Computed example of a mutant assay.
Amino acid sequence: MAEVTLTVCTTCRAGAPTDDTGPRAGALLFDALNAENLPENVQLRPVECLSACSRGCSMVLSGGPERWTYVYGDLNATEHVEDIVKGAAAYAATQDGIVPWRERPVIFRKQSVARIPPQETSHD
C-alpha cells in the first residue's frame, strides 16, 4: 500500500470566536486524530491554513501523484474522528484514491469541499 497523508488545518476556528487562551477547533481535531490508532500507511500532518475557513474544520486526504486528492470540511473532534479514520483507511486501500460511494463514511460523501485529479495519469 502506498503512503497516504491526512493533513489537518490546526488554525481553523470552525466559526468560533478566537480564544487566545485555548486551542482552536482545528488543533483539537488534529490532537484527537493523533491519539487514534491510524493505519500504518497513513501519516498525520498539521498545517496552519487550508484556506477553507468557511468550511472549517477542514482536512485533506492525499496519496501521491497517481491518486485523487480530497478536501473535506465541516468536521469536528467530537463527532467525526472515527469516521475520518475509517475513511482514511478505505482511501489508503485503493490504487487511485477512489473509494466506492457506498463504502465511504457519510461525512466523506456529504462534506467534500473539493476533489482534485491525480497529477499523473496513464495514457493507454
Rank of each mutant, 00 (worst) to 15 (best):
84 I>G: 06
59 M>E: 01
85 V>H: 06
39 P>L: 09
81 V>D: 08
85 V>Q: 10
61 L>T: 00
34 N>H: 14
38 L>Y: 07
88 A>H: 06
64 G>I: 05
49 C>S: 14
92 A>Q: 04
68 W>C: 00
43 Q>C: 09
67 R>Y: 00
57 C>Y: 07
81 V>C: 13
77 A>I: 01
46 P>V: 05
33 L>K: 08
49 C>R: 09
33 L>F: 08
50 L>S: 08
72 Y>W: 09
57 C>K: 08
87 G>M: 02
41 N>V: 03
43 Q>I: 15
42 V>N: 11
43 Q>T: 15
64 G>S: 05
80 H>T: 03
66 E>S: 10
81 V>S: 10
41 N>T: 10
36 E>Q: 15
78 T>R: 14
37 N>V: 14
39 P>D: 08
73 G>V: 07
51 S>G: 12
76 N>S: 11
60 V>A: 15
79 E>I: 02
71 V>Y: 12
37 N>F: 03
80 H>Y: 04
49 C>H: 11
87 G>Q: 07
75 L>A: 12
37 N>T: 15
78 T>V: 13
93 A>N: 11
49 C>D: 12
62 S>H: 05
87 G>R: 03
43 Q>S: 13
77 A>V: 02
84 I>N: 09
41 N>S: 11
71 V>K: 04
65 P>T: 09
57 C>D: 08
69 T>A: 06
49 C>A: 12
44 L>N: 05
92 A>N: 05
74 D>K: 14
45 R>K: 15
60 V>F: 01
82 E>L: 04
54 S>K: 11
90 A>G: 02
93 A>M: 01
63 G>W: 01
92 A>T: 02
33 L>S: 08
62 S>L: 01
58 S>C: 15
74 D>G: 11
71 V>T: 13
36 E>K: 13
79 E>M: 10
45 R>F: 03
55 R>P: 00
53 C>V: 10
56 G>Q: 10
